[in-house]
Nucleic acid binder design. Structure first.
Length: 291
DNA sequence: ACTCGGTCCTGAAGGC
DNA sequence: TGCCTTCAGGACCGAG
């Protein structure tokens, strides 16, 4: 489910609960996510101080003292919920589900971390496409998960020239190319559709033909949609929520995603949003303004 | 070396 | 408490 804005929002929810705290207790209730948990997973976490909670692409990274980093991926349906020892319920739109009571005993609550402050952090993932593992902090960038991952789209270094170089010679639709984490990190189906709409580029267009002038429009479009979505706390579609249970707002600002048959939202465009399937995934676009 | 389709898993939604 | 099919925000793996 979660793409860069959602993962970044989760990071911002986890950081205040974890940074500078020790993991007093780690419990694995179900050990078979996308891949098995590493050996002695809970033991290697317990007693460790969390120095920083970072994000790279769609991965969350918790640097621990002792030289290891906890790598976490939410897959399609992963969620973290933070329950403070003294919980003050704020007004707002909360997700009311049994799994959110903080007990960590819901059917799909797989991992529970408890800090030295008594904060409980529960990882819930009904589809189990998520991932948790430990790796040496010093060599993280060379880890197979990260070695080939492309640039962070919100970094200054992500420029039209850089994207053009990555797209050059690619004989695949631009839609598929942008979903490839080696081209650019962190984009998924929603924000690829949205960025292409904002840039006026058809998802069917050959990636190589985007290199150059079209990349000059596409890169700012990617940055803009991601920045806006991060500012809104991500998109809450289906069961995505922040670590505090609140919902993101960005789904209300999507121009094309999941709007098949509805009118194009671009001023003066009378087109309708269309859906097509590309490499097994839905693309939403307006054939009038996207070429 | 690339590109594409199938696959992992569960639940929600829609058609009948 | 209806049943069946389809679809879902990700990413790996093997075939061509």
């Amino acid at each position: 489910m979660p793409e860069l804005p959602e993962v970044e929002t989760v990071r911002r929810g986890l950081a205040p609960a974890l940074e500078g705290r020790r993991i007093a207790r780690a419990t694995v209730r179900r050990g078979d996510l996308r891949r098995p948990f590493p050996n002695a997973f809970a033991h290697r976490l317990e007693g460790r101080l969390v120095r920083r909670v970072k994000r790279r692409a769609k991965y969350l990274l918790a640097d621990l003292d002792g030289g290891e980093t906890l790598i976490m991926h939410l897959g399609m349906s992963g969620r973290f919920t933070v329950h403070r020892a003294t919980e003050t319920k704020k007004p707002g739109r909360f997700v009311h589900k049994p799994a959110d009571d903080g007990s960590g005993t819901g059917k799909h609550d797989h991992v529970i971390l408890e800090t030295d402050e008594g904060t409980r952090i529960v990882y819930t993932d009904h589809r189990r496409f998520g991932l948790m593992l430990l790796a040496d902090t010093a060599t993280l960038e060379e880890h197979p998960l990260f070695a080939e991952i492309g640039p962070e789209p919100l970094d200054r270094s992500f420029t039209p020239a850089l994207l053009s170089a990555a797209l050059k010679g690619k004989r695949t639709p631009i839609k598929s190319a942008l979903l490839d984490q080696r081209v650019v990190a962190g984009l998924g189906n929603i924000y690829v559709c949205e960025a292409l709409f904002r840039a006026g580029i058809s998802p069917k267009r050959m990636a190589s033909s985007v290199a150059g002038a079209r990349a000059d429009k596409l890169v700012p479009a990617i940055k803009q949609v991601l920045r806006q979505a991060v500012a809104a706390g991500g998109s809450s579609i289906s069961d995505y929520a922040h670590a505090d249970g609140e919902l993101g707002d960005y789904q209300y600002k999507l121009f094309v995603y999941d709007r098949e048959g509805e009118p194009c939202r671009k001023t003066d465009c009378s087109g309708k949003v269309r859906r097509l399937v590309q490499s097994g995934r839905s693309s939403f676009f307006c054939s009038t303004c996207q070429r």
